[in-house]
């Protein structure tokens, strides 16, 4: 796809950007009294579809599918689309493994996918036809499935699949011609590694677990992070402060939600500069990521409202919006 052909896609995206949730919308949602009101607010803005009813998770998944559908309609470079849909693809792998183990799993737990939707994924795993999966997924799928089969260790299964997803994103990001995509994938992997290290240190995970879970990336020395996290939270914080992640360390000292917010804000800042170039995939990718971000915010608020969290607690967890 030449740069000029992005003119059509970017123009469509410009119109769609008007319906993205703004910071004001998020504040309004936080101020609503319960989950039902938040859901109603979102549905008034066109979220969900006739099949989703008032099931919050179904509404959110419908929105993710709408975004993927739009990306398909825009006919952007399939490599970009594949890269952006890796998290959904690997999510389907995890859901597939769990469904093969426990067939009663909810069908809505799968994302729609042209080649690797629910039926295809379950068939591939049941028949151990790993060759039918993309190259970057085969080894992880086989290993995760075998571990689940032998040990029923769902957490280890998730760690293997998540790590494979990060490795695939990092590799595809490095190959990408789009600087935005490269930077975004790099930031995603780095931020996810830091998140994993923080959770691991707080739950007392071993060095072996960290080595298994952390994906190598250009901006972080994951080996050093693994050793720091295996030692103590203090050592991990010192490492982050000494390696240009002072804000991350400060957010971690403040609270878990402040750290989560820092992670998301960092990703949003990565995509912000590319929003204005109408002859690049930048605005399309930025829109896709912004949609992911607003769906995540909606999920946080819906979950918080369902659990009667106070407005202050929810406000601490919401992030910057793209609009």
């Amino acid at each position: 796809m030449s740069d000029l052909e992005f003119a059509y896609a970017v123009a469509r995206i410009r119109v769609r950007e008007k319906s993205l949730l703004s910071d004001t919308d998020i504040s309004q949602m936080v101020g609503l009294k319960d989950q039902k009101s938040v859901l109603s607010f979102l549905m008034d803005k066109g979220w969900g579809d006739p099949d989703t009813g008032s099931d919050p998770e179904a509404v959110l998944m419908a929105e993710e599918e709408k975004t993927l559908q739009l990306m398909k309609e825009l006919k952007i470079d399939p490599a970009i689309f594949d890269l952006l849909s890796y998290p959904q693809l690997y999510h389907n792998l995890k859901a597939g493994i769990k469904e093969v183990m426990d067939p009663d799993i909810n069908e809505r737990a799968f994302y729609d996918h042209d080649r690797y939707g629910r039926d295809a994924m379950v068939r591939i795993l049941s028949e151990k036809d790993y060759a039918a999966l993309p190259d970057h997924m085969r080894a992880a799928a086989e290993r995760a499935y075998e571990i689940m089969l032998k040990t029923h260790d769902g957490q280890m299964c998730d760690v293997i699949v998540d790590r494979a997803c990060l490795d695939a994103m990092e590799a595809a990001g490095q190959k990408s011609k789009s600087p935005l995509l490269r930077d975004y994938e790099e930031s995603t992997v780095a931020v996810t590694d830091i998140k994993i290290a923080v959770r691991a240190v707080r739950t007392g995970k071993s060095l072996d677990f960290l080595k298994e879970a952390l994906a190598p990336c250009r901006s972080l020395d994951v080996r050093q992070i693994a050793y720091a996290a295996a030692e103590s939270e203090e050592t991990l914080l010192t490492y982050l402060e000494d390696h240009g992640m002072k804000e991350a360390a400060e957010a971690l000292k403040e609270s878990s939600s402040a750290f989560e917010r820092w992670c998301d804000n960092r990703l949003i800042e990565t995509i912000r500069p590319e929003r204005t170039n109408p002859f690049s995939a930048g605005p399309v990718i930025a829109y896709y990521l912004a949609r992911q971000n607003e769906i995540k915010m909606a999920r946080i608020i819906l979950t918080a409202k369902a659990n009667d969290f106070s407005e202050d607690v929810i406000q601490e967890r919401v992030r910057k919006m793209y609009g």
């Binding site: 003119a7 059509y8 123009a11 469509r12 410009r14």
Partner: peptide, 11 residues
Amino acid sequence: AGQAAAGVVSE
């Protein structure tokens, strides 16, 4: 410009 215009009008 027509490509961009078509993109806007489609939405």
